[in-house]
Simulated scan of single mutants.
Amino acid sequence: MAHKAVIAGWSHIPFGKLIEPDTETLMARVSLAALQHAGLAGKDVDGIYVGVMNNGFQKQDFQGALVALADPDLAYVPATRLENACATGSAALYTAMDFIESGRGRVALVVGAEKMTSRPTPEIGDILLNASYRKEEADIEGGFAGVFGKIAAEYFSRHGDRSRELAMIAAKNHHNGVSNPYAQIRKDLGFDFCNDVSDKNPYVAQPLRRTDCSLISDGAAAIVLVSEDLAADVPRAIRFKARQHVNDILPLSRRDPIAFEGAARAWRQALAEAGATLDDLDLVETHDCFTIAELIEYEAMGLAPRGEAYKVVQEGITRKDGRLPVNPSGGLKSKGHPIGATGVSMHVMACMQLTDSAGGMQIPGAATVGVFNMGGAAVANYVSILERAK
C-alpha cells in the first residue's frame, strides 16, 4: 500500500556570492547534511531528485548525476534532474513526492542548487530570459526584469501608481531578512531608501527600482522525504495538507499579464484540498522575484480583490506582526534567488517555522504554513500547505 510522503529532514546554506565553483560542490554541502538531519544515510535513499535550471550558467550539465559524487552509497541510486524555470526546486520536490506516493520508493533526497554569479551580468540576464517566451519577449528592454517592469506598468495603468507600496514590500522583506542567517542581504534598508530613486537605487526596468528586484545568487538547499509509514523512525515529520501545481500559458500576449490566473487557481485548489481558508494559515512564504509579483500574489491568494492589494500593504497585514505574515524569511528579495534552490529553500523555511526552529524569523505558534513558488511570469505555479505531523 502506498503512503503519503512527509518531510523528515533538511539542510540549507547561506545564499550569496559563494566561493564554491559549481553546483556539484554546492549540492555536496547540503545533501549529506539533510540526510543526517533526518537520521538517515546514503544507503537508505531510493531516489534522488535534483532541481537545477542551469541553461548556461555553467558548462557542466547532467546535474542529476552530480549528487552521487558526494557519497559512494548514492552511486547506484536512480537520479533525475528537473527544470521548471524559477519553480525548478518545487518541481523536484513534487516529483520526489510522486515517486514515494506511487509506492516506487520509501526515501527520496531532493536537492536544489544554482551557481549564478560566475557569469557576467549581461549573460545572466540573457539566461534568465529563457524563462520567458523568447519568440515575443526576447527583445524586451531590461531582460527578465523588463518583463516584470511591463507587468508593473500595466498594473499601474489599471490600478494607479503603487510604487510606494512596492517600496513598503521591499522594506518589509529586507527588515525580515536581518533575522535570517541564510539571507544574502541582512540589512534593514528602510522605506525611504527603497522608495527613492538614487544612484544606489536606480531604475532597472521602469517602474521597478533595484530594490524591487530579487538578487543574483549562488546557493543550495536539500530536503529528505520519507513514506509516512517510516515517520516513527525519523526525528520529525512535516505533512502536506495540500499541494497543487497549475500552469498558465507562457506568452504574456495570450493572457491577462496581471491576473496571475494560474497562481489564483493553484491557491483555490490547494485551500480546497486542505479544507482551509487563508485565516487558517499562520504565515506564507511567497515568490517575490520582484515586488510587483508579491503585490499581485496577495490578490491571487485571495487576500484582496483585484486592484486592491495596496490596502493589504498599507494596513500592515503581511508584516511579521500582521494578520498573515508573508515572507518572514525575507523572501527572495533579501534571502536571494538561486533559481534551482528557491523552491526547496521556501519549503525549508516553512519547515523551520513548523518545528519552532526559525530563530529570529519565528512566527510564534506557527502550525499551518502556505508556500507559493512560481516559474516564469506566473506560468508554473506551485502551492503547498504544510503542517507538523510529528
Rank of each mutant, 00 (worst) to 15 (best):
M1K: 13
A5K: 05
I7Q: 02
G9W: 00
I19Y: 05
E24M: 15
T25P: 15
V30Y: 06
S31I: 12
A33C: 08
A38W: 00
D46S: 08
G47E: 03
G51P: 00
G56N: 02
G56E: 01
Q58F: 01
G64I: 01
V67Y: 03
V67C: 06
P72Q: 12
A79R: 03
T80Q: 15
R81H: 15
R81C: 10
E83P: 07
C86Y: 05
S90G: 12
Y94D: 14
Y94S: 11
T95C: 03
M97R: 13
D98T: 09
D98W: 09
G103C: 09
R104W: 13
R104P: 10
R106V: 09
R106F: 12
L109W: 03
V111H: 08
G112I: 05
G112N: 06
E114P: 00
T117E: 10
T117D: 09
L129H: 08
K135A: 11
I140H: 09
G146E: 01
K150C: 05
I151W: 00
E154M: 10
R158D: 14
G160V: 08
D161K: 03
G177N: 04
V178T: 08
P181I: 08
I185C: 10
L189R: 10
D192A: 13
F193K: 11
N195F: 13
S198I: 15
D199Y: 14
K200W: 06
K200M: 15
A205C: 06
R209T: 09
T211L: 12
S214L: 07
A220F: 08
L225C: 11
V226I: 10
A231W: 05
D233K: 15
P235D: 03
R236G: 06
R236L: 04
A237M: 04
Q244Y: 04
V246S: 02
N247Y: 05
I249A: 05
P251I: 02
P251Y: 06
I258S: 03
I258P: 00
E261L: 11
A264Q: 07
R268E: 04
Q269D: 08
L271M: 05
L271K: 03
A274L: 06
G275N: 11
A276M: 13
L281M: 13
D282M: 10
V284D: 00
T286N: 09
T291R: 01
E299T: 09
G307A: 02
K311N: 11
K311D: 12
T318L: 07
L324F: 03
P325I: 00
G331R: 01
K333N: 13
K335W: 14
G336P: 13
P338Y: 01
M352E: 15
L354A: 15
D356F: 15
Q362E: 11
G365T: 04
A366Y: 05
T368P: 12
T368A: 14
G376S: 07
Y382S: 07
V383H: 02
I385E: 04
